[in-house]
């Protein structure tokens, strides 16, 4: 290696390091505040680590607040949304990728159109529609809304994954004796697992951190999701930062677990060797 190359590599590494530090610092601060006793929060405000750490906030959040319920609600809503959206988007994305059908152009246009409006505009009409159906204040209602808003993008995402799988594979399977659906299930789907994992992850995170609809459609603790629950730490006169941060850290856990579960499928390259060489 020449001197210049070494300098460049070092600079590159430093830049990456700086970016990682920048991106992770808020998370670190989250953790730091969550273990800082309330008495030290303001006196040691800018220290990187408090002189005395404690888990009191965690204890409080887990035992004296409704957060366990909020977590459960969030898990149910996000999990259900992710699964339903992924199933719908897989089927729709496959049709988009493989079939020519009447109105395809218009359907694509409509799907794109739904992505163009600020959500705030849609809250009132949504509420008006869901309320007579008894779907406000219910997890089911939230799941329906989340599914509706996530399906278009997820469909495009899945379509791009299907586009990457050679049509010859299904043709071969159908000649081998499979119906189109069998070919889809046994040949195409296994090869799309990375795409499915990515879609699941994307939708799960989107639903997990959604605040606007959850705030507007839900009132009353029994159906509150965690992002809304966080707001309960903000009172008129003060914000209980310690407990809020502790809840935030806890909220990261399911998302991390979820990605741990699917990361195996996120690796690309499963289709290598399908065609040519």
């Amino acid at each position: 290696m020449t001197r210049k190359r070494i300098v460049l590599t070092v600079l590159h590494r430093l830049a990456v390091l700086a970016y990682v530090a920048f991106a992770l610092f808020p998370l670190f601060w989250l953790l730091k505040v969550s273990v800082t006793p309330t008495s030290l929060l303001y006196t040691e405000g800018i220290r990187l680590w408090p002189s005395q750490a404690s888990l009191e906030h965690y204890r409080f959040v887990l035992t004296h607040s409704s957060f366990p319920t909020f977590f459960l609600n969030s898990t149910i809503v996000s999990g259900a949304t992710a699964v339903i959206v992924t199933i719908v988007a897989s089927l729709a994305g496959y049709a988009m990728s493989r079939f020519v059908f009447r109105g395809k152009y218009w359907i694509v246009g409509l799907l794109l159109l739904t992505q163009m409006f600020p959500l705030v505009m849609l809250i009132a009409p949504m509420f008006k529609m869901l309320s007579p159906l008894g779907l406000t204040n219910s997890l089911t209602g939230l799941v329906i809304v989340y599914v509706a808003f996530n399906v278009p993008f997820a469909t495009f995402l899945m379509q791009s994954f299907f586009d990457g799988i050679p049509k010859d594979l299904e043709d071969a399977a159908m000649i081998d004796g499979a119906t189109r659906f069998t070919a889809f299930r046994q040949i195409v789907l296994p090869l799309t697992l990375p795409g499915i994992a990515a879609t699941l992850g994307f939708v799960f995170t989107a639903a997990w951190s959604e605040l606007l609809f959850a705030l507007m459609l839900i009132s009353g603790n029994q159906a509150t999701t965690f992002p809304v629950g966080l707001l309960s730490f903000v009172s008129k006169f003060s914000v209980d930062f310690g407990q809020m941060m502790a809840a935030g850290v806890l909220a990261l856990i399911p998302a991390c677990l979820f990605f741990l579960l699917i990361q195996r499928y996120l690796v690309q390259g499963l289709t290598a060797g399908a065609v040519k060489g």
């Binding site: 050679p166 010859d168 594979l169 043709d171 071969a172 296994p190 090869l191 399908a274 065609v275 040519k276």
Partner: peptide
Amino acid sequence: FQSYALYPH
């Protein structure tokens, strides 16, 4: 097939 279309998995 020209591309062989072997099932990669």
